[in-house]
Amino acid sequence: MATAETVILRQPAEIKYQEEIAYLESKDTSAKPFTWRLSPKMVRTFVLGSMPSDKLDRQIPQKWFGDPSFVERAIVTLASDRGLLLIGDPGTGKSWLAELLSAAICGNSTYVVQGTAGTTEDQIKYSWNVAMVIAQGQSRQSIIPSPMMTAMQRGAMGRFEELTRCTSDVQDALISILSEKYISIPELKSDNVVFAQPGFNIIATANSRDRGVNDLSSALKRRFNFVQIPIVTNKKSEKEIIEFRVKDLLARHSFSAEIPPTLLDILIQTFADLREASDAASSDDQRLESALSTAEQIGVLEDAILHSNFFGQSKIEARILARSLVGTLVRRLPEDISVLNKFWHGVIEKRSQEDKGDWTEFSEGGKDAMKTLEK
Rank of each mutant, 00 (worst) to 15 (best):
L249E: 13
P260K: 07
D248P: 10
S283R: 11
D273L: 05
F255G: 09
S237A: 14
T233H: 11
E276N: 10
E258I: 12
D248E: 13
I242E: 02
L264E: 09
A277H: 13
R287Y: 09
D265F: 01
D265G: 04
R252Q: 14
I266D: 04
E289N: 08
V246Y: 03
E289Q: 13
E258Y: 11
D248F: 06
E240S: 12
K239W: 03
E276M: 12
Q269G: 03
S282E: 14
D248L: 07
L288T: 12
L288S: 05
I259Y: 03
D279Q: 14
R245I: 11
S256Y: 05
A257D: 08
D279S: 15
R275G: 07
R275D: 09
A281K: 13
P260I: 10
T270M: 09
T233Y: 08
D284S: 12
L274N: 06
N234T: 05
R252P: 03
E238N: 12
R245D: 10
K247H: 15
T233R: 14
E238C: 14
K239L: 04
T233P: 02
E289H: 12
I242W: 00
R252A: 10
A257K: 01
I242F: 04
L274C: 02
L250W: 01
E240Q: 03
S283G: 08
S237R: 11
S290F: 02
S290Q: 09
A251C: 08
S256P: 07
L267R: 04
Q286G: 08
K247T: 13
E240W: 00
I231Q: 11
L267G: 08
P261D: 15
S278G: 03
S290R: 01
V232W: 05
I231T: 14
F271T: 01
I266K: 01
I266F: 01
K247E: 03
A277W: 06
T233M: 06
I242K: 05
A281Q: 07
A272D: 12
A281W: 00
L264K: 10
A257N: 07
N234G: 06
P260R: 08
L267W: 07
P261E: 07
K239S: 15
T270R: 11
S278Q: 10
D265T: 10
F244Y: 14
